[in-house]
Structures are given as C-alpha cells and as structure tokens.
C-alpha cells in the first residue's frame, strides 16, 4: 500500500501500460511538456519521447479523428480531452466514427482507443468546463463508458480500458485529482461490467458513480450512527451496465437511490430506475430516488454552484426522506 493522488494513479496506469505495449500512444492538449493540465502524464514525455506523448494543437475533432485512424492501423491511442465538455467539439469522431466503425465494417476491424476526459463541478469553472457527459454518451451503441471512483479504481479500470479493443470513454472526476488515496502497490486491471459493492447494508441501496461513490460512503457512515444501514454500490461502468448486482441489492433492501453527477433528465438514474422497475418491481418498497445535478447549466458563482452539486448532505437527506 502507498498513498498517492488520483492524478498520480492515472499517470501510473498510463506509464505501466506504455511500458508493456509500445503501440500505446498518448495525444492531447498540454499533456507532454507540462505533463497535463491536471498533471496526469508527468514524466511520460521524458520516458517515452515525443511521438508517444504528443502535444496537439487545439483541434479536438482533428486529434480524436487521428486517434481513430491510429486505432484502425494497429496503435492503441489514449487521448486526453482537457475537459469532458470538449467531447462535443469532437463529437462526430467519437460518436459517428469511433463508436460505429466496427459495426459498419461488419466486424472487419476493432477501434481500440481510450478517450480520457475530466467531469464534474466544484471549481467555479462555469457551464462549459463543469459538465458530466457520461449519461449523454451512454446513449450511443459502441462506446464503453467508465466512471471510476477512487484512485485505486481509476488505475485498475484505466488499464482495462487501454487493453480493451473497443472505444472507451473514461471519465475522471476533476475534484479527485489532487486528493490522496491508499493504493495497492500492484493494481491489476478491473473487469468492465462488474459493479462493486463497497459497503453492505440492509435498509436502502445507493448505486453511485465516480465521486458520488465516496460521497455516498460518507453519507452512509453518518446514517449508520443514526441506525440506518445503507448498501453502497460503485457502478464502475455505465456501459456495460451491471444491473444484476443492483437487482440483487434491491431484493435485499427494497429501496434504491441512483447517484450520478450528470444532469437528471434522461440520465443514469432514469435508465437504472426503469430497469429496476422491469426487473425488481415487486421488491421495491418505495419509488426509486435520484441524486443528480438539476437541469440547469452549471453556474459560475460558488453561491449558485455548490447548492446544486450532488453532495453528501443531499444524499443523506434523500436517504432519510426515503427510509423514514
């Protein structure tokens, strides 16, 4: 065990994978000389050189599209978008190209590429640098969508993403980058589509993504002291979705909250809530609850921003509302 930041864990995953496979090439804005806007590729330029750790111009559609061409011809590009909001600038290459080429070609090719992109609010970055795009992209067949929680999880899941033969959208939470976590000395790849029960409980289930896994655990500890037993599931991947683990938990607790930082409308909660209605309707003792960002753009002022970010307190209150 060692204590490292989430950003260091990402950097270690990149480093260990690049060491193992010379076909892995990093592309992105400011990733090379300064080691990334969030310091997730520090030292990699010196170790692997300019062709494998490439600073790009501010041309998101261009360099994501280049990644598609690299993936089709034998490389395994790992592309950093400085903010997940910039996915929209590159949307054609992600959604119309990367996601669809394997299918449209009748299975002739794979597109093994990873797009890393920070999500989340909390830095007064306003509406164009604070979004959580994981729900939107989950609409499109062909894209794997990963939402890691801790540094350990991020490291293991990023290794899996890099080794996968499909395009993977890997969403890192920007508020976690500088936090320290305990991480195993050796982290093995974590399989996709296997949710992780991080806390067992009997009164209610919270299935959460990304930072909200930690916030849910914090809320659960507080609730435990008040006699409410909360089960917390780290979803790990939205696509593929491990609904079975959620169903099993709901069968035990009878109540479910879905916590995801993307906007509420047509979100992860809408999908999981609906599937639980289909698969575990008669086990539910209450309507499924959601904790999300409400349906407004993220505002700049902390006075406006913090009240709408899904927080420990909002999760706590939602549990109390549903259990009592």
């Amino acid at each position: 065990m060692k204590e490292i930041t989430y950003a260091q864990a990402i950097c270690e995953a990149l480093d260990e994978e690049m060491e193992r496979d010379e076909n892995i090439v990093l592309l992105g804005e400011d990733i090379s000389f300064i080691g990334g806007n969030f310091k997730t590729s520090v030292g990699l330029l010196e170790k692997y050189g300019d062709m494998r750790v490439k600073d790009t111009p501010i041309s998101e559609a261009g360099f994501v599209g280049m990644g598609v061409g690299m993936a089709l011809t034998g490389l395994r590009p790992v592309i950093e978008l400085m903010f997940s909001d910039f996915l929209l600038v590159a949307a054609d290459q992600v959604i119309n190209q990367a996601a669809k080429i394997r299918y449209m070609s009748g299975g002739q090719v794979n597109v093994p590429m990873v797009i890393r992109a920070p999500i989340g609010a909390g830095r007064s970055s306003a509406a164009q640098h604070s979004q959580s795009m994981q729900a939107m992209v989950s609409q499109f067949p062909g894209l794997i969508v990963v939402v890691p929680s801790t540094a350990q999880e991020a490291k293991g899941l990023l290794k899996t993403a890099i080794r996968d033969n499909n395009p993977v959208l890997f969403f890192e939470h920007k508020m976690e980058y500088n936090k320290k976590f305990l991480v195993d000395d050796v982290v093995e790849p974590i399989p996709f589509g296997k949710a992780n029960v991080v806390r067992e409980g009997k009164d209610i289930t919270i299935v959460a993504t990304s930072s909200l896994v930690m916030k849910s655990q914090e809320a659960a500890e507080k609730l435990e002291k008040e006699g409410i037993s909360v089960e917390v599931i780290d979803l790990r991947t939205i696509v593929p979705l491990d609904i079975d683990t959620v169903v099993e938990s709901v069968k035990k607790t009878g109540k479910l909250i879905v916590a995801d930082e993307a906007h509420e409308r047509c979100g992860v909660g809408a999908e999981i809530g609906f599937q639980i209605m289909e698969k575990a309707f008669y086990y539910l003792d209450a309507p499924v609850g959601r904790v999300n960002t409400p349906n407004v753009p993220l505002p700049f002022s902390p006075a406006l921003e913090f009240p709408i970010i899904p927080s420990v307190d909002r999760i706590y209150k939602k549990v109390v509302e549903m259990v009592k």
Binding site: V25, M51, R52, A61, G62, F63, V64, G65, M66, G67, V68, G69, M70, A71, L72, T73, G74, L75, P77, D92, Q93, N96, Q97
Partner: peptide, 18 residues
C-alpha cells in the same frame, strides 16, 4: 460524414511515421 475521413487517414500516417 463529409470531412469525417480526413483525420482518420492522417492518423494512419501518424502510425506509419511512429
């Protein structure tokens, strides 16, 4: 997609150079 293939071919060239 009009123009969609241009970066893809460019990426193949990047592979060839690397």
């Amino acid at each position: 997609i009009v123009g969609g293939g241009i970066p893809i071919a460019t990426g193949a060239a990047y592979m060839a150079k690397y």
